[in-house]
């Protein structure tokens, strides 16, 4: 069930150059729009042709530029769910799913497979509807059914929930997670939504400008995203360039304060999650003025500017529950930034 990808594809002003391996479980490609994550899936599916490289699945070569191997999408037997689902508009739900059951089945077996798949995904009642008569969530499930019935060796989902209204997303996501578990094989998921990826994936790859910047188990990547892009993509919003003073001291240039921490080789910026600011005294303690307070539905974001920092320094955001902030609200407050919570970033 192992997938190995090592491809290069050149575009105007942008080169996609990704390599990774995934053996079972769900790998999520996290990246901003236009970073090449959808293109990567299309290359694996055989819809786009990379300029160079290799793609292997279960030991079979799907693409190899040197050996001039480029299997047709039909021969690759990989499932790709498109962002807008790409259901055939003039076909009913039954006919759409039947299109996925054409390969390797005939007559009775084909119809039975369609019926069973619709039943399992709770779509039997919608069998005679056209895609335009379905809700977004139902369309997503039909697209999933159509792919699952084709028995793909690899399941790829391109932004599977981005076309849905937010209230539909959570339930559809839950159902999709269940189907992915039942599928049991290797799954590639593409998204720009860190929450979605955190809930769905075992491993995460961070894509930025066509390259894999970090790849690893989900928790490790979120704890140490490695690059500025990774820091922002995993939802860390406080970011400052640094000037290294010595191995244990740096000046945070954007925040305008000195910080003490064991610096890694090459670290040129630091990130600090909005949840990682701690009240009171500890490592890296600063007296801060409250520059602004932003109210969210269930929390406050308090913008802090250290008293020692210049007036034009970038304030540091701190998100905390409403009750907690109400209890300590003041115009000046003492906080600290634990050294272990500072994300060390490179590039």
């Amino acid at each position: 069930m192992a997938l190995t990808v090592d491809i290069v594809k050149r575009f105007k002003g942008f080169t996609l150059q990704v390599s990774f391996t995934q053996d079972g479980g769900t790998l999520a490609l996290l990246g901003a729009s236009g970073c090449g994550k959808s293109m990567t899936l299309r290359c694996i599916a055989g819809i786009e042709k990379p300029d160079r490289g290799r793609i292997l699945l279960d030991g079979e070569t799907l693409f190899d530029s040197e050996r001039h191997i480029n299997l047709s999408p039909q021969a690759r037997r990989v499932g790709l769910m498109f962002q807008r689902y790409a259901l055939f508009p003039q076909m009913t739900v039954w006919q759409n799913v039947r299109c996925g059951a054409m390969r390797g089945r005939t007559g009775e077996a084909r119809e039975r497979a369609v019926g069973e798949t619709l039943e399992r995904l709770g779509l039997s009642a919608l069998a005679d509807r056209l895609p335009a008569q379905l809700s977004g969530g139902q369309q997503q499930r039909v697209a999933l059914a159509r792919i699952l019935v084709s028995k793909p060796r690899l399941l790829m989902l391109d932004e599977p929930f981005s076309a849905l209204d937010s209230h539909l997303r959570f339930r559809t996501e839950e159902e999709t997670r269940r189907e992915i578990r039942a599928f049991g094989g290797t799954v590639l998921l593409v998204s720009h939504d860190r929450d979605e990826i955190f809930r769905m994936a075992d491993r995460v790859a961070i894509l930025d400008a066509g390259r894999v910047r970090a790849i690893g188990p989900r928790d490790e990547v979120f704890a140490d995203p490695g690059s500025r892009a990774g820091c922002l993509l995993t939802g860390c919003k406080n970011l400052s360039a640094i000037r290294r003073i010595d191995g244990n001291h740096a000046e945070a240039l954007d925040w305008g304060i000195p910080l003490e921490l064991a610096l890694r080789e090459g670290t040129d910026a630091l990130g600090l999650r909005m949840h990682s600011v701690r009240p009171g005294v500890g490592e890296n303690t600063f007296r801060c003025r409250v520059a602004d307070v932003v109210e969210n539905p269930f929390s406050f974001t308090v913008m802090l500017r250290p008293v020692a920092a210049p007036e034009n320094s970038v304030p540091i955001g701190w998100e905390l529950p409403k009750d907690e902030w109400r209890a300590m609200a003041a115009r000046e407050i003492t906080v600290h930034f634990p050294a272990g919570e500072l994300l060390q970033l490179k590039g």
Binding site: V78, F82, A86, Q90, G100, M102, R103, S150
Partner: peptide, 26 residues
């Protein structure tokens, strides 16, 4: 929408089927 044809190909439908049953009706 070329994604419809692409989806057909990844599902294993023949190019002839895609032309007559998906592209032409579209």
């Amino acid at each position: 929408d070329e994604n419809l044809a692409a989806a057909g190909r990844t599902l294993g439908l023949s190019n002839t089927y895609i032309f007559w049953r998906i592209r032409m009706p579209g």
